[in-house]
Design a binder for these strands. Structure first.
Lengths: 343, 343
DNA sequence: TTCATTTATTTACGCGCGTTAAATTTATAT
DNA sequence: ATATAAATTTAACGCGCGTAAATAAATGAA
């Protein structure tokens, strides 16, 4: 490998013995040039290791090969995990993903979208904050940039939505609990940031109605994205008051459940599947840590891969279609019940 | 706000009644133009909402205002948390951070650095994979791009290193445990990916020597970044064999400890600070979840803010100094002991 | 008012690449 | 060998902005 510094495509083209427009063509699509030409370029590429200036490239493209991935809260391993899968898929398809976290803040989410706009991305995969989002801001963004929403839906916004079927989550947990003789109350934040939480509450109420069971909502205080601490504080309060309506608690999500378990342990309350345990706990999401809680969490798992795959696939379709799809489809994937030690 | 589309700086300059070079000057540094001029530009900015084309800007800069942040494993909330702080600091200083995760893979880490190179970043904050890193690749990168290493040191590589003082971590936990009458064995991976793990082992051995206590290393199998599962499997094996040398376990890091606690619960072994508990567990890092484990983890906390602040500050110095610092400083921050329920 | 100083304008070039049209070469099929 | 199609070359323009030099205007102190 020669360590000669190459300034631009012109120089590289000369060194490889190919004209610049052909070299340019090669970089846009290696298959678009004759194999013999491709070989000569790739040979030169190995010798001189030149990379086209990404800024010059993108200046002349209406759209870049960038894909923006925006999640509401990256410190939540659930989002880190799904972002990881999304990144891989994008790279595999020849795109350059860039990852952003709104860190639970509306202002940051809006700022990220503003910046993203000037990155001229081919497309964006956006998991909005939810209730905290500036809906109009996101709408405006989606009008200009091909965007797929995931995880958290905003009705009518974006070219499509891909997420999990909240009813599937809750119906399976409720059904399982009641089948094993446990009558769950529903443990959730009073003002959930995420629309999925509302869907889960409705699913719980509906399921209890169908099963002819009395439903109980346990709503706890707290704002923000520190769900574990919110769950813990809420649980401490409820448990100390002795106001838990049933001995089976179905948490809206695993992070609240992690807090709930922590509170139980602190108060010396036994949690587990067995009859002799004081409380049974189940939850939703199959958070990466839910298998390591004590006891391990019975929960309903997202189909990470399916959600990520379908979101990316839909985005690619959207990009190929030039940024508009016929109809705005909402695709929901079913949950898978994971029976562990907590209920 | 007029919704007239503005194509370029020329148009915007005309509309704002200022010449283009002056407008350009304004965008590079608003303070560099007369206040009256600034006002006129900012008034126009509100009316027409124009943003300079970032690609055209960067093409003409030798260095951009980008800062790369690279962490080894973003699904680890520890890194997500520190990345969050780093991002904020960069934004506050007028830079544009972009976040990358190596996802525990050497190939990906190298690829990220290659891409980063062509982003012409003003600087990079890099937490290497550690043992799994391609040292030469990173060295080459650091020669070309102003880089500060953090979290995990590679001797002599990068312009500076900022991290935590592993001896401080271990000395405090060991000292605390022994002071309360507990003699810890050290629980760790056989082949730790991270150099900090080695430093911690040495610190443990040194501390035990100083305290005139017999030291015991418990080395468990496992590779990769799924530390919780590795810790859990390792603990199950050791506990089932009954080969735990002491009833006090000092884990190399919190994620292993989380796995350890999970195994204990599974086997019905009580863990806690009290004498009547079968096992006492302490650890290091103050992982975001360590306060929610059952029991909550006694651990030594990183000074996240200090590490992040100092890393960013050092990077800014490096950038201002033109990419070279007099000497390669290694700054280590002391740990803070967090006493919780587990030991 | 005058002169020095700061700030803005005008003009012009360059950055590295996408892209196009016309000319030319090369490959493929007859 | 010849016609046709496909690929490449040549030449040239444009993208949006940074930047430099020369000039003009505004400011501010004497």
């Amino acid at each position: 490998m020669s360590h000669q510094k190459i300034r631009n495509m012109e120089e590289f083209a000369t060194l490889s013995g190919i004209s610049r427009p052909t070299v340019s063509k090669y970089f846009n699509d290696p298959e678009s040039v004759r194999p013999s030409t491709r070989d000569r370029i790739e040979t030169a590429l190995k010798e001189f290791d030149y990379r086209p200036n990404i800024y010059a490239i993108n200046q002349n493209r209406r759209l870049t090969k960038n894909i923006g991935i925006v999640v509401p809260y990256l410190a939540d391993p659930f989002f880190a995990e799904i972002a990881r899968v999304l990144e891989r898929r994008c790279i595999a398809a020849g795109f350059t993903p860039s990852l952003f976290s709104s860190h639970g803040e509306q202002g940051l989410e809006s700022a990220i979208l503003d910046n993203l706009r000037s990155l001229k991305p081919a497309g964006v995969l956006l998991a909005p904050l939810g209730r905290a989002s500036d809906r109009k801001h996101i709408e405006d963004f989606c009008r200009d940039v091909p965007t797929i929403l995931f995880d958290s839906n905003i009705e009518g916004v974006g070219a499509a939505f891909v997420g999990s079927d909240n009813f599937s989550f809750v119906s399976q947990t409720v059904e399982y609990l009641s089948r094993t003789g446990k009558v769950p109350c529903f443990f959730e934040m009073k003002d959930p940031a995420n629309p999925n939480a509302n869907k889960r509450r409705h699913a719980y109420l509906e399921m209890m109605r169908r099963l002819n069971l009395e439903s109980h909502l346990v709503k706890i205080d707290g704002v923000g994205w520190g769900f574990e601490e919110i769950g813990r504080q809420g649980a401490l309060k409820i448990l100390r008051e002795g106001s838990l309506p049933t001995n089976t608690v179905l948490c809206s999500n695993d992070r609240l459940a992690i807090g709930f378990l922590s509170a139980c342990h602190e108060l010396g309350i036994s949690v587990g599947r067995d009859e002799e345990c004081a409380i049974h706990v189940a939850s939703h999401d199959d958070h990466p840590y839910s298998r390591f809680t004590c006891p391990s969490l019975t929960t309903a798992a997202h189909d990470y891969e399916a959600v990520a795959d379908h979101a990316v696939e839909t985005l690619f379709q959207l990009i190929e279609a030039g940024g508009k799809l016929e109809t705005r489809e909402e695709t929901l994937f079913a949950a898978r019940l994971i029976m562990r030690g907590s209920a």
